[in-house]
Computed example of a mutant assay.
Amino acid sequence: MSVTPLLITAGLQYAPAAVLEELGIAIVRTWLRDTWGAWAPERRAVVVATGLSSTQERCVLAHELEHVLAHDLDCGNRIATMRQERRADREAARKLVAISDLAEVAQWASDLHTAAAELHVTERLLEVRLNDLRGEGWPWRRQGGSKIAG
């Protein structure tokens, strides 16, 4: 079965859990100590921490889905891992935050927190998206961009 129709949907309508399901990737919810989620290719499963809000879980699933789509494996190389994490964040943010949705919210939201809540993303992933659109003059974007690697 093709996932193309689900991948085209972006922004508020984007449902990474549905894409994972269509790909046959299990979503396992469990207590995690140091992270909100992980791609376990050997189990064909995305592991998500229990206790997350629906927004947090949506963002984690979108991020881990990008690892699935890129066929990422834990390579043990710190630099390569950082690149994979940045790419997964960027691609997830692009799918979670459509420019049309962002433009609409930018008309009235007074701060990053409010905008992120309205877009159903974490503040961190909204910052990733804004940094991806650097130089576009979006509100709430912190000068200098984010220094977070993963």
Rank of each mutant, 00 (worst) to 15 (best):
L73W: 11
L23F: 01
R78Y: 02
K95T: 01
G144N: 06
T122K: 11
R129I: 09
L133F: 07
E123D: 14
D111Q: 04
H113V: 11
V60Q: 08
H113T: 14
T35L: 05
H113P: 02
L6A: 09
D72L: 05
W31C: 01
T81N: 12
T50F: 00
V121H: 12
P16C: 03
E42C: 03
R142H: 08
P41Q: 04
A80T: 03
E21D: 14
A70K: 04
N131V: 01
R94V: 13
W140T: 07
A45P: 03
G24A: 02
V121K: 10
R33K: 09
T35R: 15
Q107K: 14
L69N: 04
A149M: 09
A40T: 04
R142C: 00
R94F: 08
V97E: 08
W140H: 09
V121G: 12
L130Y: 07
R134M: 02
V68I: 04
R58Q: 09
G150H: 08
E136Q: 15
R124D: 12
W140E: 07
I27P: 02
P16G: 04
W138V: 03
S53W: 07
S146F: 02
G24L: 01
L52A: 09
L61R: 07
P41N: 04
P41S: 03
W138Y: 14
A15T: 01
V68W: 02
T35D: 10
S100D: 14
A149K: 06
A38T: 02
E21K: 13
G11Q: 07
D101V: 06
L32I: 04
V60Y: 07
S2E: 13
L7Q: 04
A26F: 04
A93I: 07
A49P: 03
S100R: 11
A117Y: 00
G51P: 10
A92R: 10
T9A: 15
E127Q: 14
A26P: 01
A17M: 00
L73M: 08
H113R: 15
C59G: 13
E42L: 11
A10G: 07
G150T: 00
M82F: 10
E22R: 15
V19S: 02
E21W: 00
T55C: 08
G144Q: 05
V105I: 15
L119M: 12
K147A: 13
T30M: 11
Q84N: 10
L130R: 05
L23N: 00
E91K: 07
A70F: 04
I79L: 12
A115V: 06
E85G: 09
L32P: 02
A88N: 09
A106S: 15
L112P: 06
W31K: 11
H113D: 12
H120K: 14
L65D: 03
R33H: 08
E57I: 06
N77M: 04
W108S: 15
G144V: 01
A116T: 05
V60T: 15
A45Y: 05
D74C: 09
G11E: 08
A115K: 06
H63W: 10
R142Q: 12
H71R: 12
L102N: 09
T55F: 01
R78N: 02
